[in-house]
Each structure stands twice: as structure tokens, then as C-alpha cells.
Design a protein around this nucleic acid. Sequence first.
DNA 1: TCTGGGGTCCTTCAGCTC
DNA 2: TCTGGAGCTGAAGGACCC
Length: 433
Amino acid sequence: MSRSQITRGARVTQSDVSAARRSPDGRRDDDGCPILHVDMDAFFASCELRSRPDLVGLPVIVGGDGSRGVVTAATYEARTYGIHSAMPMSRAKRLCPDVVILPPDFALYSEVSAGVMAVFRDITPLVEPLSLDEAFLDVSGAVRRLGPPAVIAEQIRARVHDEQGITCTVGVAPTKFVAKLASTRAKPDGLLVVPSDRVIAFLHPLPVGALWGVGEKTEEVLLRLGLTTVGDIAHTPLDTLVRALGPASGQHLHDLSWGRDPRHVTPPAAEKSVGNEETFPRDVDDPEVIRRELLRLSEKVASRLRAQGYAGRTVVLKVRFADFSTITRSRTLRSATDVGREIYATAVALYDALGLQRARIRLVGVRAEGIVDADEAPRQMLLDEPEVGWREAEQAVDRASARFGRGSVLPARLLGTGGDDGYGGAPAPPRPR
DNA sequence: TCTGGGGTCCTTCAGCTC
DNA sequence: TCTGGAGCTGAAGGACCC
């Protein structure tokens, strides 16, 4: 019996697909299953409960409590009420009026995540984090040292529990995609091994929505074709899938349905874009408020770029209107930048070019794409740019922020009421959340 | 019911160059 | 000189993931 079954009552599924057992010929089920997918259980909520043991066993959700907040994480007790992540807070509260709501503490989650990832890297250097709370591991190089994959999976579960005080679920399989499905089906606090000779039997009864890349829209298309299970997709001609979903998605789903997933576990590459967006507490139709928010977002994006040593060449403006329709506009600069003023100037030019009069806007966002190392980015000097320009000024702001805290130095336009807010003494518009 | 925020990838289309 | 196709890039939008 596995450690988890002894100590934590884990659900180690042992039906068609089993936790590692030996076959009559002496072969282990986890032979040929070097890929592990490790997923923390209700991660944000679990982190909070470490310091709030009085809440263990209660329905608890993490998320913004504002008028437009959504659920970021929910304990399994909260999920019994039908609450799930991304659900509007208002609805969650209606489903469970007694639910305990905690504000998110991303610094805490990052700290716990770093501890968990350190456990993974202690096992194997081949770790591919997907987010703060999950990662793929390729343990093929660790088998001789630590034992078969299922044994390694149990070691990981035990160490995460003992060192970080939270539980996790591990899927063990020949490929990334099957390992991920396995962990999903073993949740919470479980371990599931899908042996290579059982992959098809495991996959084909699953609903199409279980496949990676099948969301609401794709599921609709598949259901219209009469395809309800992964097995249905597998037995549909590739041409039909390509016609319905496009060449990339069609081929991708067909491959997955037969358990084919050639992707390796690769440590993360550099980021491809950096952006920030903000939903206003109430829809806004004042262009000056929008411009001020664009300035704030541009400064934030630039600051993040500089902190990581990046610069971006394409600036993307995102606008979501009151009816939730969304548009993007982008402009590629002659050279990459990490200067907030340049990003802002581009974003606001894109916004002005939209020619919106008093359209009611719900959200604005600014994103920098075409990321390169700032050191390698050629600098485009402007004709009127002084020797010491905005870049140097913003670097000085970074140093001040590091010393005195974020927000210690702000553009005058972003200062609050009661002072020179850049509007000649007019009342400052409401700040987004 | 009323939808956050941070990202990636794919598709389509238009414009440009050869 | 004109035309059409191929190939590339940028822009825009959409779907998806956590």
C-alpha cells in the first residue's frame, strides 16, 4: 500500500488504470512512464489554510471581493456547493452564503511555489513549470538513483506535504498530455499511473472536453459533428477534423486522441510578452480617465520589462467595452523599448486613433510583445531626446521604488486628489481597483 | 450569471517585396 | 512596363490555459 493511502487517505485509482503494480511477467506498470505531472490541490486556498487552520474543513474561496471579482481558488468544501474558479464572486456568495472569502496574497503563493519547485529540481533538472502550482517533470534520469517513476511520485508527494504543508496530486504516464489528464482524474491528494499499454483504454472513454486545447467553442464544434468522446475523435478521418478546426488544431487533437504527444519536458524559455490590464470598478466613458490608466499600465509594463532586463518592440492596446466585446490594436516600433513614456505614447496614439467618443469602456490593457534582451535591443535616439532621457529617469524611479517601496515616485498625473494631479486642480477621476 | 488577469498559440487578412 | 504568385511580416481577433 502506498504511503499516501496510509497517511492521507489518498485516492489512488486502481481500476483499469492503476498505481504502479507488477504484471505477471514482472514488468512494472510505470515502466516507460517517465513523465510526471504534479498539480497542487486548490493551491491558493491551501496556502492560506496553512496559517488559518481554524478554517480547515470550511468552504473557503480566494478572490477579489470587489463588485467585479471572480473566484481565484476554492477549497474542495466550497466546490461541493458548485463553486469553481473563474466564477463571479457574486454568484459564489449566492451558492454558499457562509463561504469564507480571503483576499489573494500572491507574494505568499510565489514563496510556497518556489519551495515546491525546489523539491522538483532536487529530483530532476528537467522541470517545466506551467504555473505557480503545477509542473511537468521528466524523471527518466532519476530512476536509477531514486527508484521507478511511481515511487518518485510518492516521494514528491511526501516531501511537498512535509516541507510545504500542502497536498498535491501526481499523474505518471508516457507523455505530458496523458500525465496531465491522469493528475486531473486523481485529484485531490492522489497518484495515478497510466501504463503505456493502457493509454488508449484510458483516453477513449473520456469526454472530448478532457483534451488539452478543447474549450467551450471547440467542444461545440465537435459536438455538432456528433463527437462526444476522445474515442470518437480518434475514429474520425483527419480531413474532417482539419476542415472543422483548421490544420493545426485538427492534427493536434487527432494525435492526442491516439495518445501521441511528442513534446519533451523543457525548462522554461524567455517570456514572449509582458502586459497588464485593469477592469474598472464601473464602466468609464471619460477619455482622460482612460489615458491616465494607460499611463499607469504603461509605466507598470515598462517597470516589469526593466526588472527582467527585457525590451519590447510591439505595443498592443486592448479595450473591452461595456458589452464585453474586445478589440486590440498594435503598433511595431522601429526598435524595442523598456521606457514607459514610449510605451504610453504608442498606446495612447492607438487609443486616440480609435476615435471613440464617449464609448463605455470596461477594461483597458497594455502589452509589450516581441520581447528581446534590453542589452541587445538597438536604441533609437529621438531627435529631441536629451543625453539623459526618460530611460535614465525611469531607471532612477526603479531605484527609488526598490528603496522606498512601490509607488514612492509617480508621474504627477497619477497622483491622487488633494495635490497637483496634472489636471490643473480638477478632481481626480476614480482610480481603477 | 455576468464574466479577473497574465499569458500562449493559431488563423486570417492585408500589404509589401521579389 | 505590367501582372500574378509566393513568401514574409505585421495586425487583429479568437480560443485556450491556469
